[in-house]
């Protein structure tokens, strides 16, 4: 594999120390939102790489939840709290579930892919909501993470988890960036443009979609593990369609132009919500909705285009295509 880094990757690597520094400089509550945003941001990333292939998953919460519950159940029933084992469990669970579901889902495109992913995630929601051993809709709590036998507590524990979260997220982002530039990544773009031609060129679109789907599941699951550990709690709400919907909205709002966009977008949206609630506790949804509309109207390529518009002065007409799913 090419070791040479592109701009995005250098940027991400440079951002890592900065991200970690934040934990020591900024107030705790902001760091908390950064941390949960890193977890959910990974899921948005999973949604985004599928969007590159023209696939919109309205059920990505499934893997967010699979990760969280895999880690949670390992802790609850086997008493394991080692971060690396929990991450491994999340990845393994996602590999199995996505590997199997992928055989079905890779045949679907457009709105039908969206709806089938939604249906599958809601079946898990129904199952978990009626399983009293796992706390039903109330979910259950997770212990604090340990690291190869080291069990930091209090402030140290918080900072350690944060540092690891930042590290894992940046590594995932870099690997995904590599993926987007790999042959499969380019095939995905071609699938979005015209799937029939891809097949005529002798490549299997199903194969590429399957790989992408599993990969997206794995990062989402990692996001789920990290988020659950930061929160110390999992519940079936993680796989509810409203949660999955949010990941899609974040990906669209942030734009699919760059791997870092969903991560930053998640945090910005979270902060927007916090202040909307503070300014107007009873009608914060209205503020959120209006900001979304204005963003779509003026930044059709997503927030990321704020950073790239200098390049081209073309009107937004054809730009809409790039965001998303072709038809």
């Amino acid at each position: 594999m090419n070791i040479k880094m592109d701009r995005t990757e250098t940027g991400l690597l440079l951002a890592l120390p900065l991200l970690i520094l934040i934990a020591f400089v900024l107030p705790k509550w902001v760091v908390n939102y950064v941390q949960v945003s890193l977890g959910t941001g990974l899921v948005a990333l999973g949604v985004m790489i599928q969007m590159r292939a023209g696939l919109v998953s309205f059920g990505q919460g499934l893997y967010f939840c699979v990760g969280g519950y895999a880690a949670g159940m390992l802790a609850k029933f086997l008493g394991i709290s080692d971060l690396f084992l929990l991450l491994a469990a999340g990845i393994l669970a996602a590999l199995i579930v996505a590997g199997i579901a992928g055989f079905l889902l890779r045949r679907y495109r457009e709105i039908f892919f969206a709806m089938l992913t939604l249906a599958i995630s809601m079946i898990l929601f129904g199952l978990l909501s009626s399983t009293e051993e796992l706390g039903s809709t109330d979910g259950f709590n997770l212990p604090s993470a340990t690291y190869l036998g080291w069990a930091p507590e209090g402030e140290t524990g918080r900072l350690t988890l944060y540092t690891f979260t930042a590290l894992v997220v940046v590594v995932c982002a870099i690997l995904l960036n590599r993926f987007l530039k790999s042959p499969v990544g380019y095939i995905n773009e071609a699938i979005r443009e015209n799937e029939v031609r891809v097949e005529y060129l002798g490549t299997s679109a199903h194969h590429a979609v399957h790989i992408t789907y599993v990969l997206a599941a794995v990062v989402s699951s990692i996001g789920g593990v990290l988020w659950a550990l930061a929160l110390g709690h999992v519940d079936p709400e993680m796989t509810n369609w409203t949660t999955s919907g949010q990941f899609v909205f974040i990906s669209i709002l942030s734009g699919t132009g760059n791997i870092a966009a969903p991560l930053i977008g998640t945090f910005l949206l979270e902060i927007l919500r916090v202040y909307a609630v503070e300014i107007s506790p009873n009608t914060w949804q209205m503020i959120l909705g209006s900001v979304m509309l204005l963003t779509i109207l003026y930044l059709p390529k997503g927030l990321w285009s704020l950073l790239t518009t200098r390049k081209s002065t073309k009107p937004s007409d054809d730009s809409a295509d790039k965001i998303s799913v072709g038809d």
Partner: peptide, 30 residues
């Protein structure tokens, strides 16, 4: 969806002396 982070915000940013409320068992558990 971020109940815990919201709670931490109350504690850390708003510097409340006490928190009261919560109706859902799921929130309380977290």
């Amino acid at each position: 969806k971020q109940k815990v982070a919201d709670y931490q915000k109350l504690v850390d940013k708003d510097e409340v002396d006490a928190v009261v409320g919560y109706a859902s068992s799921g929130s309380c558990k977290a």
